[in-house]
Design a protein around this nucleic acid. Structure first.
Lengths: 229, 229
DNA sequence: ACCTGAACACCGTTCAAGT
DNA sequence: ACCTGAACACCGTTCAAGT
């Protein structure tokens, strides 16, 4: 009466009992293939060669599962530290590493970016970002805020890139294709160029504010004219 | 046999036939109340005092419904033009207007920000942003990209704000509460300050690059040292 | 302790039928 | 033309039962 549910060609998976880590890995595989919205507890169980309800013994529910997968990928986010480079270069490196991760799991990231769990205090990424900002000279009590904002900004650009919004918005007002071709159009995909553009602009903005704060002024009052009291 | 499904106190809604606009409005009401993930075609029909299937005669499916609601809110996004102000001030105004809209419909925005539909070429917001960047002196063929990036950056910060990530990340490394209180902690909610901080930094970055491009250099090569050929 | 089966309360959507 | 009812193919999750 009992149907054998193994793979058709005799390659049987799961001679090993279910694990939280194994469930997370399988879920990530399904998400990479078909997107977060296509992930189903039942499909996940099938992929694990298990009963629909078996995963529930290792994961409380679907929300927790997604949070777990997000944390898992976020933790695997190792980054080269490159201690001796100038802070500008280190920020660029951190951001492009982050972007590489986003490109490796775009389906998951499009989802995870909307929740705080991607970034955890014990992530080496966060430590590296904090250290880099310390090296840059940002005032000590502002470092957490600046770090959080940098994450938000980079994530915003990545969300727009992964969803196609960046490409779409860029072409809302088509540029006149008249005679503008003297700036090397073969530098790479449009998105690469735009990503560098934001990074450079943000870094220039930080430099400008740090320079203004150099003579005793707080970084917060370097540019904005409405600093009150 | 037929149950009367009107509101209990005699205030009967929908003596008027269903409309696409009416459906969008009702959906927005439900989303504002309980979030996008709680919106159901069936609940929507109930709220409209109609049969579960009736909305399908005016809206092809749930995805299209959400896209429609997003476009509707995005279109209602009118913005003061303020033509005579300096471009820095105009950008600040556009961004804070956008933020105000996000605060008015946070549940919808947390969803809509991940799809390109919030911003349409005919939105007055987009026209104002383009005009502002033209006034700023950004090179003509770069305006669409810079505009797209500004949207992505602002949306990224708003997503992080609405999801609580901004607050959470800022407090990952708690600042030493020793004697740092001489910078007016009553300036308003933390998020207001941080939003101004990104804006000021981005604007400073743009100013810096525009200044570097002033003597014939392209804006893209103002700061980044790796501009190749 | 770990897994299973049946069941519950929902979904989105199709389709034939009503008015 | 617009709305309805019943039905289909799914969901996530509970719970009592198996080993």
């Amino acid at each position: 009466m009992k149907k054998v549910k193994g793979s058709p060609r005799g390659t049987r998976r799961r001679d090993v009992p279910l694990t939280e880590a194994g469930i997370h890995a399988a879920a990530l595989r399904l998400i990479d293939a078909d997107g977060v919205e296509a992930l189903t507890m039942r499909k996940l169980a099938t992929a694990l060669d298990a009963n629909p309800m078996s995963p529930y013994h290792h994961v409380p529910n679907k929300d927790a599962l997604l949070r777990g997968v997000t944390r898992m990928v976020g933790a695997q986010f190792r980054t080269v530290t490159l201690e001796d480079a100038p802070w500008q270069e280190r920020i660029r490196l951190l951001a492009t590493d982050f972007r590489t991760l986003a490109h490796r799991h775009p389906n998951l990231m499009a989802y995870s970016f909307s929740q705080p769990d991607i970034i955890q205090p014990e992530d080496p990424f966060w430590a590296a970002l904090i250290a880099t900002l310390e090296a840059s000279g940002v005032s000590h009590e502002e470092i957490p805020q600046v770090a959080a904002l940098m994450c938000a900004v980079v994530i915003g650009v990545l969300i727009a890139e992964l969803s196609g919004a960046l490409h779409q918005w860029s072409n809302l007002k088509p540029t006149t294709p008249a005679a503008g071709e003297d700036w090397s159009p073969d530098v790479g995909p449009e998105e690469d160029r735009m990503f560098r553009l934001v990074l450079d602009t943000i870094i220039a903005g930080l430099e400008s504010r740090l320079a203004a704060a150099g003579d005793g002024e707080d970084i917060r009052r370097g540019v904005s004219p409405e600093a009150g009291p």
